[in-house]
Computed example of a mutant assay.
Amino acid sequence: MDADLAGRGLTRLDQASVCAAGRSLAPIAFSETGGDLMVVAEGDASRIERNARAFVNGSSGWGMMALAPISAGQLHHCTVLDTVSRALALGRDSLAYGNTPAGFEEFAEASGGRILGGGRVVEVRRRPGPSQQGRPGFARGTVAVAEPDTGRTLRLEMENEYLLAVRDGEVTATTPDVLAVLDRRDGVPVACDQVRPGRDVVVLQLPAAPFWGHPHRRPTVAPRAYGFDCEARTLP
């Protein structure tokens, strides 16, 4: 199926599109490399998320998950459509435009996004976050990028994914749009757990999947869902 349950990187199971659409995650099954199996027959999404994380943290650190089947007729209600084709298109555009300054601009334009800024990563601070995000498994922190053209600093807030971009105290871009950090030398994405001081990067804002624009679904992945007290700043 050309669809998935996210359309972007998500931090928690209870943020999956099926939850945003009002469906239950249960029944759901988890297994890990040692052969242990956990099946959850019922329960709210936040409890399933906590149990799943405890299961994985207490075993090998990773595992597999299987959700209840979704009928083809229900896909457009509870999944993010066209995600596979969109990912392939992003890959083709990235290869086509290359990693020159003009290439990054063309790639952002072709993807319906924009370049937020870029420069040298001067600081990476990792820390536990508030409430439920302050537990093991949530890579929260801040990345500071010094912009040589303006002399300003672009700050990125992250929690397993890049969530907010702030410049001079003003929030300029947020989830549910996708904030992507690319290595300026080769255009390869730099994940939150890979970003380090000294890397020369370009920061892009790409539009969220239309699924997350619905007013009833948007709060699931809006800044306040991660503990940030601000409104979403997304592309038109």
Rank of each mutant, 00 (worst) to 15 (best):
A3N: 01
G7R: 07
G7V: 04
G7D: 03
R12F: 01
L13A: 07
V18T: 13
V18P: 00
E32S: 14
G35K: 04
D36E: 14
L37W: 04
M38N: 05
E42T: 14
D44M: 04
D44Q: 02
D44T: 07
N51E: 07
F55N: 00
F55D: 09
V56L: 14
N57Y: 12
G58F: 01
S59R: 13
G61Q: 06
M64T: 13
M64Q: 10
A68P: 05
P69L: 00
G73C: 03
C78N: 12
L81H: 02
D82A: 06
T83Y: 06
T83K: 05
V84N: 05
V84K: 06
S85R: 15
A89D: 14
A89I: 00
D93M: 05
L95V: 13
A96S: 10
N99C: 14
N99W: 05
A102G: 09
E109A: 15
E109V: 09
S111A: 15
G112C: 09
V122W: 11
E123G: 02
S131M: 03
G134T: 14
P136E: 12
P136F: 12
F138T: 07
G141P: 13
G141V: 14
E147Q: 06
P148R: 02
D149A: 15
D149W: 11
G151K: 07
G151Q: 08
R152H: 15
T153L: 05
E159F: 06
E161Q: 09
Y162L: 04
Y162I: 12
L164G: 03
L164D: 04
A165F: 09
V166M: 03
D168L: 03
A173M: 12
T175F: 09
T175E: 05
A180Q: 15
D183H: 07
R184M: 00
R185I: 08
R185K: 09
G187K: 01
V190Q: 02
A191P: 04
C192H: 00
C192I: 01
D193N: 12
V195I: 15
V195N: 01
R196D: 11
G198M: 08
G198A: 03
R199S: 11
V202T: 13
V203Y: 10
L204N: 13
Q205P: 01
P207H: 10
A208Q: 11
A209P: 01
F211I: 02
P215Y: 04
H216F: 10
R224M: 04
Y226C: 05
G227I: 05
A232D: 15
R233A: 11
L235H: 00
